[in-house]
Write a protein that binds this DNA or RNA. Sequence first.
DNA 1: TTGCTGCTCTTTTTT
DNA 2: AGAGCAGCAA
Length: 750
Amino acid sequence: MDLDRDLNPQQREAVFYEGGPLLVLAGAGSGKTRVLTYRIARLVGRTGLAPYRILAITFTNKAADEMRGRIRQLVGEASREMWTGTFHSVCARLLRQHGDLVGIDRSFVIYDETDQLRLVKNCIRNLGLSDSRVRPAAVLALIDRAKNQGLEPPAGVLMPTGSRREEIEAVLRAYRDSLRQAGALDFGDLILFAHRLLREHPAVLARLRDRFRAILVDEYQDTNRAQHLFLKTLVPEGGDLCVVGDDDQSIYRWRGAEVENLLHFEKDFPGARILVLEQNYRSTANILRAAESVARGNPERHPKVLWTGNDAGEKVTYLEAGTPDDEARAVAREIRSLVPARGFSFRDVAVLFRTNAQSRAFEESFLLFQIPYALVGTTRFYERTEIKDLTAYLRFLYNPKDSVSLQRILNRPARGIGKTTEEALVRLAAERGVSLWEGMGQAVTEPGLVSAAAARRIREVVDTLVALRERAAAAPSLVKLLEDVLDRSGYSSFLESLPDKERRVENVEELLRTASAFEETQGSTSLSETLGAFLEKVALVSEADQYSGKANAVTLMTLHCAKGLEFEIVFLVGMEDGLLPHQRSSLDAAGLAEERRLCYVGMTRARRKLYLTRARVRTRYGERQEAVPSPFLLDIPAELLEAEQEQIETWPAPEPRRTRRQPAATAAQSGVHLDFSESQIDLPALPGVPAAGRRQTYRVGDRIEHEDLGRGIVRKVEGSGEKEKITVQFEHGGIRKLMARISPIRKIEK
DNA sequence: TTGCTGCTCTTTTTT
DNA sequence: AGAGCAGCAA
């Protein structure tokens, strides 16, 4: 890293500017990350600022880690002192330290959307309202909308008039009270209370201002008003605040992000300097021109002209396929022709889509074509039932007031607490203004509150949980605690009784590994602190955090997840009207504009080669419909495009297609699913059409031999017939998922 | 209370 | 097409 030589004049100015608030408008691929890291490097190396005086806020925790990693190479271990994180994690940290000043329990838990929804439903029910009249999701949307603006609902939102208004207001009050009662904060609260902390406690503010001499914020176009206000309070007038963003890449409006924070930055930070980075270093000229021509369709943009010194490169390839399965196969086939023949690795390739549902076709076709892939997002790990259940146990142990978590585990495993009893308990707690846990205690000791039979069963649950709490108090480690929970709650045997226990047990094992790894990073803190930190991490992980880029695999992810990343080759798939732009968001001009930006973000992820693909028919709501090409395609000048259609039609599928679809692979739900080693590249390029006679079926426990990979044992079988997939654990240690009919494998004797 | 069936409604994107 | 839920029977 050379501060003086590696930067163009604009970048250099952004790195060295010291005159107070600074806004860097950084076009796609213009070296924004470089500016941020170099700026920190300058602060530490030249200006001599101690790293602990720096606060860097990024969009994902992953980005924060990466930034810290880069700084570390520069200043060594002192980089650990630098504060990095997302707005949410930074605020959570502040509240852990000083939350008591604004009435927040030190051991607060964070409620995610599922928890929030549960709570809202409880509130509606406890008030005796009907959830068709007061829709839980609508109330939740309202809560978020208000909090995103930095307001306490119902402030800042449009409320219905008449009696429904009063009902909703009652729900909002109940929601707020229950959160407090549970010692819980929702995402919005993290920002809100942290901001209140700064406003109401000048001493804390002064300390923070004294400490943080430099603050940097990435992806500023995707901050919401609450975050903006928080920052405005935190940064003293003329303070060293550097925000970086690109209005063309604002894609979180639906989550409350306001580009205005970026566009009117000077208004809130008077005297701010504005710099524009316009040279794109990432993409070929053709890709950039194509992307820009899509972006230009939006009327309101901050004026900037992106240019590149890079070669024109290849044209953008437009592929039209029949069905989504055809589209996925066409992409797979194309990838096969690029890797390794044209010198690319699987890790150079990304497939980006608008909706998670699109990923399935690609997973299947990649399995078929033996293309290793890593699926980012989708059925998020921490939202899987068994993981949520276990973390609910942990959360309850950490904070017994956490009624939503307790409610969740009440009857998990089944303990004879049905809906009736559950409702009675929740209502009892609400009426008496106590936590569910206390309510349960009262239901057991005071006769007449619930039926004798129910009381007996509740008593059993209480006993189990009390025993667990005693164990927890004495547990030596997080992992041990989790194991205790699994054994003593009966959850372990409950899991074993489930139909797809294998997958679930795997997930639980994964959780144990994560916990164990996390514990090792924690040093010598108390278990309670470790537990709190772990739960916080679990609550605030982001989708994009999963992307490691380490495995040699094709990346599959949504456009939203792809923000900030780049790949040599990008397939932007599903370029259809209704998908991109998505039907639901193209109702108003602002929504449509955001879809356009989303398309722009996707296109600009590509360095060397961009493919835009679409299907001619797509199934929507179970009905086959003609798909119309995305209108964004029309904005791209024809001379930049090269269309390929016929090839796709004539390309023979590696296996005969069946009319009936097999059940979707429960495959591969997180992280890397096929950790193919580099040597995978040398495998025979394409599986041929399977010989008709080769019809073996496999069962768990069968021993097999693979031509290249050696001997192994079948761990899992999914699908049947041509789509039969088996998961094999090989003797050399690797685990692979294979298409049973196509892979060069045979059964062997035990 | 559980477990089944048949109905509805859905689909964005996620800290 | 599929998930999730309400309603009903055991």
